[in-house]
């Protein structure tokens, strides 16, 4: 049973999980110190007849100690985290050679825009798939994240990446996968009654396999550009409010 972090397939995932373990060590020390201390005191200093509590108003030196130590710990943790954060999230963090993909969220689906033959996003020959995100492993991907109606949040647990999609904003999100496979995009921001089922299939290909897939798609869309909702066929079936068994995708 997966009681903790899911498999990590992001190049920067290791650094995030390292932060997790560092924090776990710091907090575990504090946790044991406090909980064990309290239980111990409860036993050692429980009421005894004729016994009288030790009268004191505190200790300057102790105050300084338990102010300084956590302060240092926190500042250190802050500096450490800030570094990782900057590497992943800062607006200009994405590597230059990234592959650009457009993601537009709306109630309750993810519309993914791919560059067409000209390999630039935002041109007439782009094609869009509904709830289908395909990209190659071993190459940085740069998502241009947008929302149409309300807030949504782009979340791929195994890639350790999450970013809210905000109407009126275009937010860059980058990551690089270390292996191919099938995953899911989840919507992590409450967006209405369909929030719980706002998912998309993520297919990470090996690079050459991805090239093949891309060529097919470009071809089929060139043909089908007359037929409007060909993209529908590619999408997962929409479960209704009552339908709860679902193809594991």
């Amino acid at each position: 049973m997966n009681w903790s972090l899911p498999e990590n397939i992001a190049t920067f995932g290791g650094r995030i999980d390292a932060v997790f373990w560092v924090i776990t060590i710091v907090t575990a020390i504090a946790f044991v110190l406090v909980e064990v201390g309290i239980v111990w005191f409860c036993i050692k200093y429980r009421q005894r007849e004729g016994h009288r509590a030790f009268y004191t108003h505190g200790s300057k030196s102790l105050e300084v100690l338990w102010t300084a130590v956590p302060a240092l710990a926190m500042v250190a943790l802050g500096i450490y985290s800030a570094d990782v954060w900057a590497y992943i999230k800062y607006r200009d963090a994405a590597p230059a050679e990234s592959l650009h993909i457009g993601v537009r969220a709306k109630q309750f689906e993810w519309n993914i825009a791919y560059a067409g033959a000209d390999e630039v996003l935002g041109t007439s020959d782009d094609f869009t798939l509904r709830n289908q995100l395909h990209f190659p492993a071993h190459q940085p991907i740069l998502i241009w994240l947008e929302a149409e109606d309300v807030l949504h949040s782009f979340f791929i647990p195994q890639l350790r990446v999450k970013q809210d999609a905000v109407p009126g904003m275009t937010i860059p999100v980058w990551f690089e996968a270390t292996r191919s496979g099938e995953f899911q995009i989840g919507c992590a921001e409450l967006c209405g009654l369909g929030h719980y089922r706002m998912r998309a299939r993520v297919t990470i290909h090996e690079p050459e396999e991805y090239e093949r897939w891309l060529v097919e798609q470009i071809a089929s869309h060139a043909v089908a550009s007359a037929v409007p909702d060909d993209t529908e066929s590619a999408s997962e079936p929409e479960p209704t409010a009552h339908e709860h068994t679902e193809s594991g995708m």
Binding site: L5, I16, F20, I23, S81, K89
Partner: peptide
């Protein structure tokens, strides 16, 4: 503290 640390809060 886990949530305060931005990189891990991302998860």
């Amino acid at each position: 503290i886990y949530m305060a640390s931005t990189p891990f809060d991302m998860f």
